[in-house]
C-alpha cells in the first residue's frame, strides 16, 4: 500500500509583485483580532523610494519543515501538523522567548501585557489553522484566531493580497505557480525566475 501524500503547506511572497500595501498585515490583524503591538505578518521593504530597486516582502511564520522554534522550545509547546503547518499550544507556553532567538524570520511575537511590561505568551501566524483547542470554538478563536483552513479557505493574508504576490498552499502547487509566472511571459502574471 502506498503512503498517503499529504500537502506541505507553505507561503511564498513574490517580491516582484508585492507593493508594500500592507493589506495582508491589516487583513491578518482584523481577522484574528490580533492585539496592538503584535504583528503576525509584516512587510519589509529595502531601497525604499528608489525607482527600480525597491523590493518588498511580506513575512510571517514560514512554517519550517525542520522548525528551529520547535527544537528550542523548553516546554515543547510546538507541534507540526501532517500538512506541515507549525502550531503551538498557548496553555503550555511560558513566554520565555527562546523561539524568537531561534527563528530566522522573527515570527514569534510577544504581547507586553504583564506587570512592568513582562512578556506574555507567544503569538504567531497559524496559517489560519487555529490551535489545539476544539476547531472553531470560542476558546480557539480567543487564543489563536480564525481557523479558516478547517473551513477549506485560504489564509486571510493571501486571500486579500491584491497583486497576488502572496501565495499559499501545497508547496508543489506554489512552486508550479511561480514556475508558470516565470516562464509564461506575456500571459497572465509574469515575474522573474529568480528571487532577490
Amino acid at each position: 500500500m502506498s503512503k498517503p501524500e499529504y500537502a506541505r503547506m507553505k507561503f511564498y511572497c513574490d517580491e516582484d509583485l508585492c507593493i508594500d500595501c500592507n493589506g495582508c498585515v491589516v487583513a491578518c490583524k482584523e481577522a484574528h483580532e490580533v492585539p496592538v503591538g503584535i504583528n503576525r505578518r509584516k512587510v519589509v521593504t529595502i531601497n525604499e523610494g528608489i525607482v527600480g530597486k525597491e523590493i518588498s516582502l511580506s513575512m510571517a511564520c514560514m512554517h519550517c519543515t525542520d522548525a528551529p522554534c520547535q527544537q528550542v522550545c523548553p516546554v515543547d509547546c510546538f507541534y507540526i501538523r501532517v500538512d506541515g503547518i507549525v502550531l503551538h499550544d498557548k496553555d503550555k507556553c511560558i513566554g520565555c522567548g527562546y523561539c524568537l532567538f531561534a527563528c530566522p524570520f522573527g515570527a514569534p511575537q510577544f504581547p507586553q501585557d504583564g506587570a512592568f511590561g513582562i512578556k506574555g505568551k507567544m503569538d504567531k501566524c497559524t496559517m489560519c489553522a487555529g490551535g489545539p483547542e476544539e476547531t472553531n470554538s470560542p476558546a480557539e478563536f480567543n487564543k489563536y484566531g480564525q481557523n479558516r483552513i478547517a473551513e477549506g479557505k485560504v489564509p486571510m493574508c493571501a486571500s486579500m493580497c491584491s497583486t497576488k504576490a502572496l501565495l499559499v498552499g501545497d508547496s508543489t502547487e506554489v512552486a508550479a505557480i511561480k514556475t508558470y509566472r516565470s516562464v509564461a511571459h506575456g500571459k497572465g502574471i509574469s515575474t522573474q525566475s529568480y528571487g532577490w
Binding site: V75, D76, K92
Partner: peptide, 8 residues
C-alpha cells in the same frame, strides 16, 4: 528544565 514541568 521546562520539559519537566511541561509548561502551564
Amino acid at each position: 528544565w521546562g520539559m519537566r514541568s511541561g509548561g502551564g
